[in-house]
Simulated assay, not measured.
Amino acid sequence: MRKSPGKALAAAALAIGLSLVGAAPAGAVKGGVVDAGRGGADQTLAYGRTICYQADVIGLGWQNAVCNGAVAGSVGQGQTIGALRFVTGSWFGLCARVFMAGGTNWEGWSCADDGKYLQVGIPGHYVAVQAIEFRTDSGPMGIRASLSGSGWLGWSYGGNVWTGVGEFRAFEAFAVNPNPGSGS
């Protein structure tokens, strides 16, 4: 089955992000997925992990990929996020689920191995992400979000982390730190 051009471009953007942080060599896209590897001598982050991610901002589309604690989305512009994409290096898998505006339940869990992108939410629609939860067995991580009308929430850390729960406000921006205690 042939990958859609949008998926191939998203994987390429995330591969570039991973190469910038030393988690994967430039051009590490094979068949529309990122080959992030399982670590190695070029890993400089604590835990040897990296994560790149991008936001589908409602009305603007997919934004550029960022990595390791950088902010994705649009801060203070009143633009909300409808979907999120992640790709990891040296995590040995990541799972996520989201709670969407107007929903009454969490969406089901989505999981991906290293080098394959994980997408949650509804890209291209006008339904905003209001909360996200992550699950990983590869050690602690951190996440924070900027919510519409209220600004940034503090960092949440652990092996099973979430942000935005009970706030009922749309995400405008978010950041993920694969290395808690590294100053974020």
Results as ranks from 00 to 15, higher is better:
residue 19 S to I: 09
residue 7 K to S: 12
residue 42 D to K: 14
residue 32 G to Q: 11
residue 23 A to C: 11
residue 25 P to S: 10
residue 31 G to L: 13
residue 53 Y to N: 04
residue 56 D to Q: 07
residue 22 G to A: 05
residue 50 T to L: 00
residue 65 A to V: 10
residue 49 R to S: 05
residue 77 Q to K: 15
residue 6 G to S: 13
residue 24 A to T: 01
residue 33 V to W: 03
residue 11 A to M: 04
residue 17 G to F: 01
residue 45 L to F: 13
residue 4 S to E: 04
residue 61 G to A: 10
residue 47 Y to W: 12
residue 66 V to N: 09
residue 13 A to M: 12
residue 46 A to E: 00
residue 63 Q to S: 11
residue 46 A to S: 07
residue 69 G to S: 05
residue 32 G to N: 10
residue 51 I to S: 03
residue 40 G to Y: 04
residue 72 A to D: 14
residue 55 A to L: 11
residue 21 V to Y: 01
residue 32 G to L: 06
residue 3 K to N: 04
residue 74 S to N: 02
residue 18 L to C: 07
residue 69 G to C: 08
residue 7 K to T: 13
residue 44 T to P: 00
residue 19 S to T: 12
residue 3 K to Q: 13
residue 20 L to V: 06
residue 43 Q to P: 00
residue 18 L to K: 02
residue 21 V to W: 01
residue 38 R to D: 05
residue 29 V to F: 11
residue 49 R to K: 15
residue 46 A to T: 00
residue 48 G to V: 06
residue 19 S to Q: 04
residue 37 G to K: 08
residue 23 A to H: 09
residue 69 G to W: 01
residue 24 A to W: 04
residue 41 A to G: 06
residue 43 Q to V: 07
residue 12 A to R: 13
residue 40 G to A: 04
residue 35 D to N: 15
residue 5 P to Y: 06
residue 36 A to H: 05
residue 46 A to F: 12
residue 69 G to I: 08
residue 19 S to C: 03
residue 15 A to T: 07
residue 67 C to W: 03
residue 46 A to I: 00
residue 38 R to N: 08
residue 7 K to Q: 13
residue 52 C to H: 02
residue 20 L to M: 11
residue 52 C to S: 15
residue 31 G to I: 02
residue 62 W to I: 07
residue 28 A to C: 15
residue 50 T to N: 11
residue 42 D to A: 09
residue 23 A to L: 08
residue 71 V to L: 04
residue 50 T to G: 10
residue 63 Q to H: 06
residue 13 A to D: 12
residue 74 S to I: 11
residue 73 G to L: 06
residue 65 A to Y: 03
residue 23 A to F: 05
residue 19 S to A: 15
residue 32 G to Y: 11
residue 6 G to E: 14
residue 56 D to E: 14
residue 77 Q to I: 02
residue 77 Q to R: 14
residue 40 G to T: 07
residue 31 G to V: 00
residue 68 N to Q: 08
residue 30 K to E: 14
residue 75 V to M: 01
residue 12 A to H: 12
residue 76 G to N: 15
residue 4 S to K: 02
residue 12 A to D: 10
residue 35 D to V: 14
residue 19 S to G: 09
residue 26 A to M: 14
residue 40 G to S: 04
residue 27 G to Y: 12
residue 75 V to N: 01
residue 53 Y to S: 06
residue 61 G to H: 08
residue 37 G to P: 01
residue 29 V to K: 11
residue 60 L to C: 04
residue 68 N to P: 12
residue 41 A to F: 03
residue 44 T to W: 02
residue 7 K to N: 14
residue 25 P to K: 13
residue 49 R to H: 05
residue 39 G to A: 04
residue 58 I to Y: 01
residue 47 Y to I: 03
residue 51 I to M: 13
residue 26 A to I: 15
residue 75 V to A: 02
residue 44 T to G: 10
residue 18 L to R: 01
residue 72 A to K: 07
residue 7 K to D: 14
residue 7 K to I: 10
residue 72 A to G: 10
residue 39 G to V: 09
residue 28 A to T: 05
residue 29 V to W: 08
residue 44 T to L: 09
residue 42 D to S: 11
residue 38 R to T: 12
residue 11 A to I: 02
residue 41 A to S: 11
residue 71 V to T: 15
residue 73 G to M: 04
residue 16 I to M: 00
